[in-house]
Nucleic acid binder design. Structure first.
Length: 679
DNA sequence: CAGTGAGCGAGCTTCCGCTTGACTT
């Protein structure tokens, strides 16, 4: 028997169905070894030697893997073809090889020859069979690159977090990824706070042709100067222009007709699926991943944690056939449309996210039942499946074609003016038939060049420049991906961790706002550890990891070059940085002992504590404290307090009165805005 | 169904990136 080990049990099941009885396909469930959770696990004096353990959760799996590998003729490591996958294969080989030694095979060479490493990028019978014919050795340079990544993250996280416990509050955390995510949110909030809206005016006009046809136009140039935002600043300026326009003479100076095309978007990868599911379905990234996981386990979609837009030849062919058979030749392409990855750090171990059964059409388009349609159980699954199916099919459809017309009208008054009138009409919908998108169509009349037109109406309008929007889950993930920070498997957890730490909260519009504690932590990190929370830190790290993978650099060199200056700085900061706890006294007196109350600082933000601490342990919440919640209306019991969302010790959310403990109102459900009427 | 703090000492918190259930209400 040949043993094949992959990472995911679903993948194992699929691959097993492609192979005969001589192969047993099992899964490792991701990494089987890691650094210990309870301590650093890196011997810094001994050239950063990592101390790996098998975490409790993995023990059971490893035991089973050992058992089946004893009987195996060959052990084929078929983990993903990327840094993490190579490391998983390496650890599997180490652990299983050591186990084989215990029982029979004493000769190391003999044991090593049992192991084979294979890779594939799509789960099709051909791809698997092809891969089995071309085994290779484990790439130890790539494994080293993963080790460097792991060790660096551990050193940073397990050094900076305790620093925060000491200087700010317990249970806080910092890391290469989460601290940059927090920084983006804090900096955006400050841009918004300091934003000064600028007044500006836009001028539209309606012209009439000799035949009485209307042309709706916008002013784009004055004396050959483009009107950028803010160039007409005041109502006076706008009125002056209007006055001059009313005296001016106008004619059409150009009519430009052309065909424009719009291409379909590439099929989904993890980040774009999360973004689109948020914008169209209002799903959180966590929710999206949970639903996608379920669809994946039922064999309805390909793997949902991917950074690749590649599609298997087979799926491309099937999409083409489906389009020909169902929408007709004109909606199918004669070639396959392939997409290129945008992200530089993409590791492309998997395909794009697509349906596996192309004929399983979403409910809304289905003409007849499909045997697999009962596998889509919930309406959420149906909605997400529909997005994935449509996006994939649309990616293989022709461009949408528009006729666009641009008319330019020149006006001569005291100044010279240029107006533009543009029209857009859909000529062929192409992919828009499956992936609809709002496009503002506008028909405009046929006109001739040099034709004179008369000004019918001037419409000036007042505007104000807008601050940049707050990040939401979708836009934050998009930004992180652009910066190469985080991986498909971590986007959703990043979003969770910055909220669990009380660094940020989601407002009613589902946008992120930093809390007081979030800003505090960010400021400390930015001031004292600027290189770690530098937006480009990960990009620089990736460059070095690439060199390790290419065998140009030793991983220990990279770590040493980073660690010693970092560690020296950290030691200095332990000395120089003040404990951040506020000691500000207030006018308020302690309700228990009468001593003044002080503003104190904790993981949850500011609060009031008795200055007689620890003899007197009186505390009360500080008013206007944005640190962990937003107001959700007034308290239905006392009418004086605000309703705030809070967490129980067990982590469950509930709604309570902000005046607690004076008012003990609490409810699992969000209370209604209006107070209860008496019956 | 309701946190939080100093300092002493115990013991613990914490990172990122692979993967799924096994828990709770």
């Amino acid at each position: 028997m040949n043993l094949v080990i992959v990472e995911s049990p679903t993948k194992a099941k699929t691959i097993s169905s492609f192979l005969d009885k001589n192969y047993l396909v099992v899964s490792s469930y991701g990494h089987i070894r890691d650094l210990p959770k309870s301590k650093l696990g890196i011997d810094i004096e001994n050239n950063f030697e990592p101390h790996y353990i098998i975490p409790l959760k993995a023990k059971k799996r490893v035991k089973e893997l050992k058992k089946v590998s004893q009987k195996a003729k060959k052990i084929i490591l078929a983990t993903d073809e990327d840094r993490e996958g190579e490391a998983i294969a390496f650890h599997l080989m180490e652990v299983l090889s050591a186990d084989l030694k215990k029982t029979k095979k004493n000769n190391q060479k003999e044991r090593d020859s049992l192991f084979e490493r294979i890779v594939f990028h799509e789960i099709t019978p051909q791809a698997i069979k092809e891969a089995l014919l071309h085994p290779r050795q484990i790439d130890l340079n790539l494994v080293d690159a993963q080790q460097a990544r792991r060790i660096l993250d551990r050193l940073v996280g397990y050094s900076l977090s305790p620093f925060l416990w000491k200087k700010v509050a317990k249970r806080l955390s910092a890391g290469r990824v989460q601290s940059v995510a927090l920084r983006l949110i804090v900096e955006r909030e400050r841009e918004i706070r300091s934003f000064q809206p600028q007044e500006y005016w836009l001028i539209e006009a309606i012209f009439l042709t000799e035949e009485g046809k209307q042309l709706e136009s916008s002013l784009i140039k004055i004396n050959n100067q483009s009107i950028a935002e803010e160039s007409i600043r005041t109502q006076e300026e706008s009125e002056e222009i209007t006055k001059d326009l009313k005296k001016a003479s106008f004619k059409i100076i150009s009519v430009n007709k052309k065909e424009t095309k719009r291409n379909p978007l590439p099929p989904f990868i993890t980040s774009t699926l999360q973004q689109t599911a948020f914008s169209q379905l209002r799903f959180s990234s966590k929710q999206t991943m949970r639903i996608a996981q379920s669809l994946y386990e039922k064999g309805l979609i390909t793997y949902m944690r991917t950074d690749s837009v590649n599609l298997s030849q087979q799926s491309l062919f099937q999409a083409q056939q489906w389009l020909k058979n169902n929408l007709g030749e004109k909606y199918a392409l004669s070639h396959f449309r392939q997409f290129k990855n945008k992200s530089k750090n993409a590791q492309e171990a998997h395909e794009a996210i697509r349906p596996t059964i192309i004929d399983l059409v979403p409910k809304s388009l289905r003409k007849k039942e499909h045997p697999a349609s009962k596998k889509i159980e919930t309406s959420q699954e149906e909605k997400l499946y529909e997005l994935i199916w449509r996006r994939f099919i649309a990616s293989q459809m022709p461009e949408a074609i528009f006729d666009s017309t641009t008319i330019e009208i020149e006006g001569k008054g005291e100044k010279k003016y240029l107006f533009r009138c543009s029209g857009l009409t859909l000529k062929f919908d192409g992919f828009l038939k499956i992936w609809p998108k709002k496009i503002e169509e506008k028909e405009i009349p046929q006109v001739k060049e040099k034709q004179a037109v008369t000004l019918e109406k001037v419409i000036p309008s007042q505007h104000f420049t807008q601050p940049p929007p707050r990040y939401n889950e979708a836009s934050l993930i998009k930004k992180l991906e652009e910066l190469g920070i985080g991986r498909p498997s971590t986007y959703a957890p990043i979003i969770s961790v910055i909220q669990e730490r009380n660094y940020v909260i989601k407002n009613e519009q589902k946008a992120f706002q930093p809390t007081e504690i979030g800003e505090k932590v960010n400021d400390i990190l930015v001031e004292h550890f600027p290189e770690i929370v530098d937006i480009n830190f990960t990009a620089k790290m990736e460059e070095e990891l690439d060199e390790i993978a290419q065998g140009k650099l030793k991983w220990q060199e990279v770590i040493r070059k980073f660690y010693f200056p970092f560690s020296k700085n950290l030691q200095e900061k332990y000395q120089s940085v003040q404990n951040q706890n506020f000691q500000e006294e207030t006018e308020e007196k302690c309700e228990k002992c009468g001593k003044p109350l002080k503003i104190r600082f904790s993981r949850f933000g500011k609060f009031l504590g008795c200055s007689g601490f620890p003899e007197c342990q009186f505390t009360k919440p500080l008013n206007n404290n944005n640190s962990f919640s937003q107001s959700l209306g007034s308290c239905p019991k006392c009418q004086k307090g605000e309703i705030i969302k809070r967490k129980t010790k067990k982590g469950r959310w509930f709604y309570g009165c902000s005046r607690y403990p004076e008012c003990d109102y609490a409810s699992w459900q969000k209370p209604q805005e209006k107070p209860q009427e008496k019956s």
